[in-house]
């Protein structure tokens, strides 16, 4: 699945210069960033979150995630967008809640991340 597929499924918008052809292999809906870091597989994951600060991108970077999608129409600040562009991280925003977005992605067959 690519970011373009996620974008269509969540009726989302790509923020900044993210590449829609970026591959997404799994998803993780989480607002506790320590939980995102406690992982076995998060490579090429899309992180669905209600947080919008800079550390959402930092955490995604540390775990080799591919994209971050902000829920309920939230948008991060310019500093976050700049960092994401620098790191090649795709940012999206959707009007859906985490619950709805997770449901949509699940239906498309996108799996979750493995936990320890």
């Amino acid at each position: 699945m690519t970011v373009a597929d996620v974008k269509a499924a969540l009726d989302a918008e790509i923020i900044g210069a993210g590449d829609p052809e970026t591959v997404v292999l799994r998803a993780c809906a989480c607002d506790l960033l320590s939980d995102v870091l406690r992982c076995v597989t998060r490579e090429k994951a899309i992180l669905l979150t209600n947080l919008t600060h800079l550390q959402t991108v930092r955490v995604a970077e540390m775990v080799d995630a591919a994209a971050v999608c902000y829920m309920r129409g939230k948008r991060p600040g310019d500093d976050v967008i700049r960092l994401a562009e620098e790191k090649g991280m795709v940012l999206l925003t959707t009007k859906m809640t985490s619950y709805e977005a997770s449901g949509q992605l699940c239906r498309l067959g996108l799996s979750g991340c493995e936990h320890d």
Binding site: D31, S34, D35, L37, R38, T49, L51, H53, Q55, T56
Partner: peptide
């Protein structure tokens, strides 16, 4: 409020 401080940090490091 930023999504940290849940008492998992050291555990994550250990992990």
């Amino acid at each position: 409020n930023l999504g940290f401080g849940a008492g998992m940090g050291l555990g994550n490091i250990q992990n």
